[in-house]
Design a protein around this nucleic acid. Structure first.
Lengths: 332, 332
DNA sequence: GTGAAAGCGCTAACAA
DNA sequence: TTGTTAGCGCTTTCAC
């Protein structure tokens, strides 16, 4: 491995000049520049990135916190974020926290100690105040959670509007007993969805049943169990719901399977709205009505904002929401 | 941010001693050790990792190359690998190549220049000889591709055996016109599957139709299009197949949907075997017979092997295969 | 426009 | 068992 010293020797200039060439500084005579570039090519010199990182106190690494990569929505999100990182020359470092606070804190430590230039949080166990406090430690972005902080850039789906559209659609179909599934009602995004759910009812002058607001439902299996709870054991219980706002296409498909299994006709006796427009929503029978999000746009904006901040640009903190789109298929 | 110098001053010892304490070196008197630890705690000193990386020429980062994170199998694999990285104290840096050679080469450059301590390749556009050549540049592991290199650690599913089991199962059900779907027949793993497909036929004294060996089929949509090709336009064409070995549960579910759509009864007129045991295979009707892989075991072994190599242990290169398990469900 | 020199924070010979 | 010293490879003043 050669160093700039070798390049300097070979081209008969000083290390400083080599460094200047490497960094496209102005004020290098085109003649020396040529000589240096020639030497670089001949030696196949590659600057030592770690030394650069050490010197410049940057690592070109961006941490991405997700709860579960096995969750298809987060896989997709991690995918588009990592791609945007690459485009901007950052290395995406992926951390799964599994919803565990200790693991999340470990990542924040790495970020605080500047092992990571910036951190993208797509899912967190921290509350607003805790994030507020952290925001002084460096460049931090929330992507996907509907916090309303004014010290952090935040990008997220307009969850409230999305849920509102989905539930309104169900109510328009004449449904009056809509179950609302959440994976974690403590999170701002799920709270926002719930508020959209309520608003859809209010707007129609309807009420909802708090007993149908369900928490900790996130997988195919959860959806199936829930369906079995309603349909599997008691005919009277089955009558307590006529629609489900499922929170994810996976939950929706689990629920749908249970409906099939216990002879509940979809969309005649029961309507289902999923979330995410995952391919799974295409291959069930019937296909699942769902809500499409805007991960690509979001990822693009997230990395651009980070990049600006890392480049030292002063700019007001952003709060940008994206509009989900209801895609009506066979379950409604 | 404090440095070891501050800690040294505060505790009245030299930087070296602080460094020794930090690195758990022997030969530090317990008295000084105590003083140093006290100072560290009081100052809330955190060693500068970048400086450490610079000095030790390690970054504690491991690159993971996947083709598409949106592909659920790779999402799962990336997930288990990243978790194992965390357990061993490495930062998992995720690179999606989208099957693009240039992008892949960029990652290899980062690895060669030691920005990444090690590299895990789960999907590659390189051939055996090219990987051979690269292997001298540092710690490299193939995870998921059935190369048979003796200069690289390789961990992969026994694809041949897995396909053999799946196809044998179809043949045992009396199927004689089995279509074989591959996403990329040029890859060693898909070649191995094909060879399992053939072996299953040979063992039963049967032949196969080369026209039913299909390439570039990887998504739900691909599976659906394929199904439409067979069932949608011509009744004679529909008779050319009676089973599909789909290569993934997503392809299988797309195919299944097409079968539904065109009135082909599964599993009566057509049998389907998927791959990966993804949750999607549970929620179709009928659920898809599939093959379960062993990503967790594999990821565990991969990182352990990397860790050993990075710790400088000399050991022969490994070639470890994992046995897939056929899970019979409703499509066969 | 260019070079000399300092130094980022840490580890590891080496000497004591 | 400890401290002194050198130096990893680079960027960035500063003086010319």
């Amino acid at each position: 491995m050669y160093t700039i010293r070798d390049v300097a020797n070979k081209s008969g200039v000083s290390k400083s000049t080599v460094s200047r060439v490497l960094n496209n500084h102005p004020y290098v005579s085109s003649e020396k520049k040529k000589r240096v570039e020639e030497a670089i090519k001949q030696l196949e010199f590659k600057p030592n990135q770690i030394a650069r990182h050490f010197r410049t106190k940057r690592t070109d690494s961006i941490g991405i916190i997700v709860s579960f990569l096995a969750h298809p929505y987060f896989a997709e999100l991690a995918g588009v974020l990592s791609e945007e990182c690459r485009i901007h020359g950052y290395k995406p470092v992926l951390f799964q926290t599994f919803g565990d606070r200790t693991q999340e804190m470990d990542v924040f430590e790495k970020w605080k100690s500047k092992e990571l230039d910036a951190l993208i949080v797509t899912s967190t166990t921290l509350n607003q105040a805790e994030l507020d406090e952290l925001s002084d430690n460096g460049v931090l972005t929330i992507c996907n959670e509907a916090y309303t902080n004014n010290k952090i850039d935040i990008f997220c789906l307009n969850e409230k509007q999305a849920a509102f559209e989905g539930v309104k659609h169900l109510l328009n179909k004449g449904r009056r007993k809509v179950a609302f599934c959440s994976d974690d009602l403590a999170s701002p995004s799920q709270k926002a969805r719930l508020s959209g759910f309520k608003q859809a009812h209010l707007q129609k002058g309807l009420t909802w049943d708090d007993a149908l607001i369900l928490d900790n439902i996130s997988s195919v299996t959860d959806g199936y169990s829930l369906g079995r709870y309603y349909f599997g054991f008691s005919t009277s219980r089955a009558k307590t719901i006529d629609a489900v706002f499922a929170g994810s296409d996976f939950v929706a498909s689990g629920f749908l399977k249970a409906a099939h299994h216990y002879g509940v006709k979809v969309p005649f006796d029961l309507s289902i709205v999923g979330f995410d427009n995952h391919p799974i929503s295409e291959v069930t029978s019937p296909p699942i009505t769902t809500i499409m999000n805007k991960t690509k746009d979001m990822a693009h904006d997230v990395i651009e904002a980070l990049d600006m901040r890392l480049l030292g640009q002063e700019r007001p903190f952003m709060f940008k929401q994206y509009t989900g789109i209801l895609i009506v298929k066979g379950t409604t």
